[in-house]
Amino acid sequence: MIKIGIPRALLYYQYYPMWQTFFEELGAEVVVSPPTTQTVLSEGSSRVVAETCLPTKVFLGHVLSLVKKCDYIFIPAIRSVKSKTYNCSKFLGLPDMTKAVIPESPPILDIDIDVNKGKHELYQAIYKLGRRFTWNPFRVRRASIAAWQANLNYQQLLCNHSLTPPQAIERILDTPGVEPKTHSEYPIPMQATIAIIGHPYLLYDEHINYRLIHRLKQAQNKVLTPEMLTTEELESATARLVGRAKWTCEEEVVGAGGHYLRSGADGVIGITAFGCGPDSLMMDIVQRQAQTMTTPFMSLTLDEHTAEAGIVTRLEAFLDMIYRKKRKRICV
């Protein structure tokens, strides 16, 4: 059976159930790289120039860990998933960049996703990808329909059950991981509601953000993430802040930020990677909005030099500030 490798990085968190269904329907086996570790990160960063952003380095590390473990590696080049949007160059150049910096990698399966070019081009691209497994166009069609359904189910699961992507993927795969215990068994009231905004590949990669979500939960805070919002909520919040979204991944930052700032989160934490092009503008928009609404906002920039102690100190200070603000409000 053909083995397809999927790196556990970047768009994995958004589309993994869809990709898995697609390839399995076509009779391939899917191999996912293990979670990020320090070795993955440092091997990934050793291959590229220093200015490359952290998520890309992590991604390349995952590709390296898949070398010799699969026959193909699936790396899509996603330009747009909505009309008139555009994606960061690093996503577009990802297949070519991987080929250039990891010459020993297995052959790369790439697919151009660009809805601006019209449905026909999109279907052609999917068929071209499926043709590597079967000559039968109807089988490719069946696989894509099943994949799309899997994607819809996945989004439903995220939105309705307030699960994080790794939890939802675990539930779909039916392999419940060891859920780190929080104190939620005890009936202690929640201290505050904290919203975290940013791209899924930063929020849910526990190695690079030092288990931020877990830490917040452990401190008895309710954590809100962009995936918990419906598409309509995200879109209307984006429209309020910037008009029409211009980036493919804009809604999870600007939309979620705009929504949570307004819907009464006690504080918002924005997570960006150092040198992230789109984020440098989008986080700025959210930060400006937070300033006018006087909601506490903290911007955390991650790179491979980020240290655990630094993150913890900043997090504690931020939480203390929010608690004090809340107490004051209650007293008055």
């Binding site: 120039v49 200015e51 690093k90």
Partner: peptide, 15 residues
């Protein structure tokens, strides 16, 4: 510095 397309180009050029 931080130019997205040129970083990709810079990574590809040596190969």
């Amino acid at each position: 510095f931080t130019c997205m397309p040129e970083i990709v180009a810079q990574n590809i050029m040596p190969s």
